[in-house]
Simulated assay, not measured.
Amino acid sequence: MALTIRLLLLLLATLVASSPSTCTFTPSANATITNYPGSPALNTTKNYPYNISALSEIPIATVCTSPTGNRTAELACARTYIDAIDEQLAFLYARRLGYAAVAGASKFATNTSLNDPSRNDVVAAGMAAKVLKYGATEAAGAVMGGEGCMIYAALEYEVETIRESCDSTFTVDVERVCE
């Protein structure tokens, strides 16, 4: 009888210890106020063509148009600006992943599915509208928003974070959907 009670208590303790609701999740400080693009704390010797710590400083692409039609100069100029913008995008995406990890941990703690196709559709449509608002195509925004990369990568990040923080055996099949 005492052995049965001990086994039941051990089983209960194991279940409580592995319960999603007992997971203590602390998001990483990934993209921070000290490591933003262009931050002096990064000690970089990279020279950017504008202040990359301010979105309003990004010039429009016409700055790379050569009055003489020098396509080599235009390409070099475009690559310089693309590199700077990629630095900003990487920072913003790392910051977004931090929030995705919080969302994933919250879903995990409440036994809610990480992958909600209807929510993914809302995110993709929202990004499509935002990208369209800024002058690109709706299709490019939809891919960025969720039909391909952003949601897929965020879900993978959420799964990895839950494995590291809460449950090393946690697994979810995340499929990348491209239309």
Rank of each mutant, 00 (worst) to 15 (best):
R79P: 01
G135C: 13
K107S: 12
N115M: 11
I82P: 02
A84Y: 11
G135P: 13
I58D: 00
L55Y: 08
P117C: 02
V102G: 04
T68W: 04
Y81G: 01
T62Q: 13
S53T: 05
T72A: 13
S53W: 14
K46C: 06
I151G: 00
A129P: 09
L155A: 04
E87L: 14
C64K: 12
P117Q: 09
A76M: 08
C64R: 14
G98E: 08
S118E: 04
E87G: 08
A90G: 04
N47C: 07
A84G: 01
T65D: 08
S106T: 06
F91T: 00
C77P: 05
K130A: 12
A128Q: 10
A73D: 00
R71V: 06
P67H: 00
G141N: 10
K46S: 03
R79V: 10
A76W: 05
T110G: 12
C64A: 06
Y81V: 04
A78W: 06
R71I: 05
D121H: 10
M144E: 02
S53G: 14
K133M: 13
A103T: 06
Y93L: 08
R95M: 04
E74Y: 11
Y99I: 11
E147W: 03
S66P: 04
G98F: 10
T62A: 15
S56F: 08
I58E: 03
T62M: 04
G145N: 10
E57Y: 15
G104N: 07
K133V: 03
M144K: 00
K46I: 11
A128W: 12
V123M: 09
T68I: 03
L114M: 11
Y152G: 01
Q88G: 05
A128K: 14
D86K: 15
T137A: 06
A94E: 09
D86G: 07
S56P: 11
T72F: 13
V122D: 05
A76R: 13
N120R: 00
T112L: 07
G148M: 00
K107H: 13
T65G: 00
D121M: 15
L97E: 01
T65K: 15
A128N: 10
K133H: 14
P49E: 01
P40E: 03
G135S: 07
Y99C: 13
S113Q: 06
I52P: 01
R79N: 07
V123H: 03
A142L: 12
P37I: 01
A94G: 10
A76N: 10
A101T: 01
T65S: 10
P67S: 04
T110I: 07
S53K: 06
P117I: 00
S66H: 08
V122G: 01
L75D: 01
